[in-house]
Each structure stands twice: as structure tokens, then as C-alpha cells.
Simulated scan of single mutants.
Amino acid sequence: MGMEVAFEEKEFLACCGSNLFAKEMAAVAPFSSIEAAIAAARDIWFNKVDVNGWLEAFAAHPQIGQSPSPNHKSEISAQWSKGEQSTAMETATDSTLQELSEWNVRYWKKFGFVFLICASGRSTTEILVEVKKRYPNRPIVEFEIAAEEQMKIIELRLAKLFSSKERSALSGDQNSAIITKKVEDRVSIIRAHLTAASEGSASKASKIPVRTRPPITTHVLDVSQGFPAPGMEVLLEIWRGSQPRPTFGGSDESSWVRQGFSTTDKDGRSGQLMSIVDSVNPGIYKISFNTGKYCPGGFFPYVSIVFEIKESQKLEHFHVPLLFSPFSFSTYRGS
């Protein structure tokens, strides 16, 4: 994007229901690119918004199976939430809606906030499976997952805003109906990576799971369109060379050992690149994206991101997303 894009505070509030977040974002706007906006948003969300602000943002989401309240603080956000739940409502029966309502209440009583999940394209039955899988989690685990997923919501909704601003600048008001439709369709990805589940079964109820997902995950966002990037091939490798780490300028590609391969789904999420293990092997990892196949006219035939997991980090989670456009890309270490 070649020019700075201005937003109003209410637009940031549509991305995140925390008033402090919206105020802080408005204070540092405008932004020259979606990457700059996301970088600012991550800093504000994790370093300036407190726990009360997190809970305020969670509370802005209606429970799955329910419509936003009439006094919802953001009309745009309410529209997105409605679109998000469309598939669930279309596939619902009286019995599944009743069961979902009961699980929403049970989840709320345990964790103190609504159950958040990427609902677009999911049936009510699929959502029920997920809430049952995540319910055994410790409250602190769920709270951290929710905070990370809210950041993904922010990230993707910012992309929608940037996309709509660009389209409006190019074509004026005639695109308003198209933008509204795209907003409703794309809101499905706002919770793109909620896959938490208990590793223990009923027979292992006494064991508290450490992992709820593979230790290394990724997603791809096509920031040039404000959409997730479906159908992009992703490869995860680990360094197994004679030296403890690859050297700058080295060319021993045979020393990289394949760990997993997948293709991103409609929400830009990669499939499982490795097993769900409590402790990941420390070492140098490389995650590569086949950007040339996804975008044949772009500048990058592929993109590789090399990162290190230290011994002291082997119990942590590493989310390494790719924010991609035909002539630029960026990444960050999520969790």
C-alpha cells in the first residue's frame, strides 16, 4: 500500500471489543501498511491492554448459537458475528441447539467468558465436539488460548478494514454492497486457530495435558486481498547437519530433514505439520511456503522462515504465521 490509511476509533472497536485497544490504535494511526497496523495491534493487545480489557474483548462476542444483543457496541462487529454463525444455524436442530446452549452455560461457569471458535463453515455438531474437547482444559490454558485467538481476530479484521478502504478509494460507494458481503463471508476466519483439546480421555482425567495442539503451527494471510490464503503448500524441516546450526551462506540443503507437509485450508490454516508431543526437540527449524505456486506472478518463488527452539523453550508453543503479498512478506513469533 503506497499511502497511509486512516481509521476511526469505532472501526478499531469492531476489530476488538476492548475500548482501551481501540483508543490506543486510534492514537498511533494512520498506518502505511497492514503489517504496520498488525505490529502495533500486537504490541497494544499484549503489552498495554490489561486482563480486564481482554475480558471486555471476549464479552463482545455472542455465544455460539445466539445473535448479538441489540446494544452491541459495534454494528460492524455484530454483522460479522451474525455471518460467522450462519452455517451453524442452518445445520442446527432443536436438540443440537439445546445441547449447545447447555454447554455454553457449562463453559461460562468454569472459565468466566464465552466459548470462542471459528464458527464459519462449521455445523452445530462440529462446534459441540470442539467445546467438549476443550472443556477439560485448565482455566489458565483457556484464557491464554482465548487471548491469542483474539489477536488472530484482530489481525484478520484489520485486513478486512484495509481491503475495504482500498476498494472504496478505488471505486467509491458502488462497492459498499460487495464489501459488506465479503465482510460477512470472511468473518469466518476471525478465530482461525482455536483447536484446543484435552489429550487425556475420561480414563486419564487425573492427567493435566501440556499440549492441546502440535508445538509448531502456522497460518497464511494474503494481505493484498485481506483474505486467508487457501491451497498454499507448507513444509516443516529440522536441521540435522554435521554442524550444530546452519551457517550464513551455507548450501547444504541435504542437512534439512523433513518433519511434515500440508496445504492450507480455506481459513489459511496449515494441517498438522508434526505430532502433538509434550516436549518438542530443541533445534533449528525451517518452515517453507510455496508462494510461487500460490501466486505465479509474484516476486517470491518460495518463502522460508528459519527459527530456533532452545532447550528452555521445548514446552512452549510456536506459531509462525506468514503475512504475504505478491511483493512483500512478514512474520512474527506467536504462541
Rank of each mutant, 00 (worst) to 15 (best):
K73Y: 03
T218N: 08
T212K: 07
L13V: 09
T93I: 03
T264M: 01
A205S: 12
S86F: 06
L97I: 06
A196P: 01
G292R: 00
H319L: 12
E311C: 09
C16W: 02
K207G: 06
V49Q: 03
A197L: 11
L100A: 11
G231T: 09
V220M: 06
W45G: 05
N281Q: 15
T93Y: 01
I154T: 01
R134S: 15
F248W: 12
L323Q: 09
K165I: 00
G297Q: 14
D267F: 08
D50E: 05
P214G: 04
R138N: 06
W108A: 14
P136C: 03
D50Y: 10
L55F: 12
S224K: 04
E130S: 15
A60V: 02
K310L: 13
D50Q: 04
I276M: 05
E237I: 01
E149R: 07
S163Q: 08
A26V: 05
R157Q: 06
A169Y: 12
S201C: 07
F289V: 05
V277F: 03
F318I: 06
T218Y: 00
F307V: 13
W54S: 01
V183Q: 01
I276T: 14
F307M: 11
L100V: 04
I117V: 09
V210S: 04
F300Q: 02
V306H: 13
Y302D: 14
E11G: 01
S206G: 06
I208G: 05
Y332I: 00
F113D: 09
R186L: 09
A26R: 06
S206E: 14
A119S: 10
E155M: 04
K10N: 10
L235C: 07
V280R: 10
G65V: 07
E253H: 13
V5H: 08
R122S: 12
S262R: 03
Q63G: 06
V280A: 13
F318S: 13
Q66N: 11
S86W: 04
M3F: 07
N175D: 04
F299P: 00
T263A: 10
I287Y: 08
K182S: 14
M3L: 10
N104W: 01
D252L: 12
T247N: 10
K132R: 11
I34K: 04
N175H: 04
L315V: 07
T125N: 12
W80V: 15
S201A: 11
S69H: 04
E84C: 00
S275A: 15
M25E: 07
E4W: 11
I154M: 03
K109L: 15
S18M: 01
I190C: 11
